[in-house]
């Protein structure tokens, strides 16, 4: 059983025996899954004490540090994949983190929620900020300070010299191929330096 919809998609892209760095790795579930499914090895980065303990309990390597400060301590191109699963939208300096992902990793894998998802659009038209199961916060307590649509993210990648290699769009765990920016609420991107 995989805890999050994007984990299986990420695991499909991670090559066997790959070296991965999971930014904002939470309780280490993804890294443990990647080790079991792909024999991947590597490290997670986390800031929260409870998550550090959860990772150590799972026998997942974890480094306690603040991602917002960049990835100093990690050598250029020292990982096959640098993963950022549903964390990007909560970060202050998106440009820095994407730059750091591609400095340290050969490829980046990023999961983002889609603010252009139709249900959210309807909530906005109704005059309220969107609140849903996948983005459950109110406007005043949300950690998600940098929400965007898929179209926004892809434009950002073009501007930053980031080449998107693959995109997997989902809605509540099911694959979406039609009108992704309208019907998808989550996407996983795999990318490299253009």
């Amino acid at each position: 059983m995989i805890a999050r919809a994007d984990f299986a998609a990420i695991a499909r892209w991670v090559e066997p025996n790959a070296k991965v760095l999971d930014l904002g790795c939470g309780d280490g579930t993804l890294l443990k899954y990647l080790k079991e499914a792909r024999n991947a090895h590597g490290y997670g980065i986390e800031i929260a004490d409870a998550n550090i303990l959860a990772c150590v309990e799972k026998n997942v390597n974890v480094i306690q540090m603040d991602l917002e400060a960049g990835l100093s301590g990690f050598e250029p191109q020292s990982f096959d994949f640098v993963i950022l699963s549903q964390t990007l939208q909560a970060m202050r300096n998106i440009e820095l983190v994407v730059k750091e992902i591609l400095r340290v990793g050969r490829q980046g894998i990023v999961t983002i929620p889609n603010f252009g998802y139709w249900r959210r659009r309807i909530q906005i038209i109704g005059g309220r900020m969107p609140v849903s199961k996948d983005l459950p916060y109110q406007w005043y307590d949300t950690p998600n300070i940098h929400l965007c649509t898929f179209v926004d993210f892809e434009a950002f990648c073009r501007d930053q010299g980031v080449r998107i290699l693959e995109r997997h769009v989902m809605c509540d765990g099911d694959d979406v191929s039609l009108l992704p920016n309208l019907l998808g609420n989550l996407a996983v991107y795999r990318f490299e330096k253009a």
């Binding site: 004490d49 974890v62 306690q64 020292s78």
Partner: peptide
């Protein structure tokens, strides 16, 4: 340790 690919966990205790 990271540079040597060693298994390591690091915690900064408040």
């Amino acid at each position: 340790l990271l540079d040597n690919d060693r298994r390591v966990s690091y915690a900064e205790i408040t």
